[in-house]
């Protein structure tokens, strides 16, 4: 199962009750959001609205279709904009 790591955002930690690493059954980013919401109500919404994910090191923003592999490491980080 892919592993989710909360490297950041203590705001998210409040929602997971301090858990920083957990596994989630998902094969794409959209499923991941839905599962996060199920496990930790509010977290899926937070990820969807204001966070990006790094899947195996690469940053994805707003990409529901991004593929997760069984051993993937998913890191939740703040969304990145720019000037």
């Amino acid at each position: 199962m892919p592993k989710v790591v909360l490297a950041s955002g203590s705001a998210s930690l409040a929602l997971t009750g301090g858990v920083t690493e957990f596994e989630v059954e998902a094969t794409n980013f959209r499923r991941l959001i839905l599962e996060l919401e199920k496990c930790f109500p509010g977290l899926g919404t937070q990820v969807e609205e204001s966070m990006a994910v790094a899947i195996d090191g690469e940053i994805y923003q707003d990409a529901y279709g991004a593929v997760l592999r069984p051993g993937s490491e998913i890191v939740l980080i703040p969304k990145i904009g720019g000037g």
Partner: peptide
Amino acid sequence: NGSKTHYGVSHT
């Protein structure tokens, strides 16, 4: 390439 940053992302 491959270095992992403190925010969790690995440089690629």
